[in-house]
Simulated scan of single mutants.
Amino acid sequence: MTKTEIIQRNVRFNQWVQSLESLSNEEWLSPVKPGKWSIAEIIAHLTYWDRYFLKERYPKIKAGARLPRSIDVHVMNQGASLYARSGVSKKEIIKEFLETRDLLIKAINARSEEELDAPFYNREHPETLRKCLITFCEHDRHHKHQIEDFLHKAPEVEEMN
C-alpha cells in the first residue's frame, strides 16, 4: 500500500467517523454486543491509541531504531473506556478523534516512501512504519465493521414455541 493510499484510507475513515454524529445517544452509548464496548468507547479507544502513537512511538521510528516495550494495552483501553463513559459529549469525542487523526495524516505525509520502509525494531521484532500504518488501517476496519454490524443488525426474531 502506498503512502497516498494509506492517507486516503485515513481520510475516508475520518469522513465515516464524522457521519456517526447523526446517531442517537442510545446508539452511541449502547454496547455493540453484550460485553463489548459502545461506539463512544470504540472511537475514544482509537483516539487514545493515535495520541499514544503520535507522542511516544512515531518520533522514535527511524531506520535501525530499537523501540522499547509499549505501554500496558489493558490500562490504555480502560482509560479510553472510562473517558467515553464520563459524560463527555458525542460531538467532543468525535472532534477529538478527527483532530488527532488529522495530526496522524500530517505525520504520515511528512515521511517519504523510503522512510516508510526503513526497518526498525519493535522490541526485538523487525518492523517498518508502513507495516504499522497498514495494521492501523486494518484495526480501523475491524472496529468499523463492529459498529456497522451493530447499526444494521436486523431486529431479533422471537422463537415460536
Rank of each mutant, 00 (worst) to 15 (best):
T128D: 00
V73L: 11
H45N: 09
F13Q: 00
S89F: 03
E158L: 15
K131M: 07
N161Q: 06
D102I: 09
E96S: 11
L129F: 01
Y83N: 11
W37S: 07
L29T: 14
A44C: 11
N109Q: 12
W37Y: 05
N161G: 13
I6K: 01
S38L: 07
S30L: 11
S112F: 06
L46C: 05
E113F: 11
I147T: 10
K3T: 14
I134N: 03
L104P: 08
L82M: 14
Q78N: 13
D50W: 00
Y48I: 13
V73Y: 03
E41H: 09
S30D: 08
N109L: 12
C137G: 07
P119M: 03
N161R: 05
K95Q: 05
A118I: 04
D140Y: 01
L46H: 01
K131W: 01
D149M: 09
A63S: 12
L46W: 01
D72M: 07
D102V: 11
W37K: 06
Y52F: 11
P119R: 04
R101E: 00
P34K: 04
C132M: 01
N122Y: 00
D149A: 11
A107P: 14
I94H: 02
E27W: 02
R101K: 08
A40G: 15
R130Q: 07
K33G: 12
E113S: 15
E158T: 12
E41G: 15
K90G: 03
F120P: 00
H74D: 08
I39G: 04
Y48R: 06
S89K: 06
D102R: 10
K153H: 13
R57W: 03
G35H: 08
R57V: 15
K62I: 06
I134W: 00
I134T: 06
S22Q: 07
E156C: 12
P31V: 05
W37R: 06
E113G: 14
H45G: 11
H45Q: 10
P119Q: 00
A63P: 07
G35Q: 09
T47P: 08
N122D: 08
L151H: 10
H74Q: 09
E148N: 11
A63G: 14
Y52R: 07
G64T: 04
S86A: 09
L129C: 04
G64S: 04
K3I: 12
V17C: 05
E114D: 14
Q15K: 09
Q146V: 14
P68A: 12
F53Q: 03
K3E: 05
P34Q: 03
K55F: 10
K106R: 13
G35F: 06
Y83W: 13
H125Y: 02
I61Y: 02
Y58P: 11
C132D: 03
H125Q: 05
C137I: 10
P155R: 02
M160T: 15
A65P: 09
F53P: 05
V17L: 05
S30Q: 09
F120A: 02
F150R: 06
K90S: 02
I71S: 10
L98G: 03
D72K: 07
T128K: 02
K55R: 13
G79S: 13
H74L: 13
E127W: 01
E92N: 08
G87P: 06
D50R: 03
E27H: 08
R111G: 10
S24W: 00
P59V: 06
V11D: 03
R130T: 05
R12D: 12
K33A: 15
E92D: 08
L104R: 02
R141I: 14
E92Q: 07
V88E: 01
R66F: 10
H45M: 10
R12K: 10
A110Q: 08
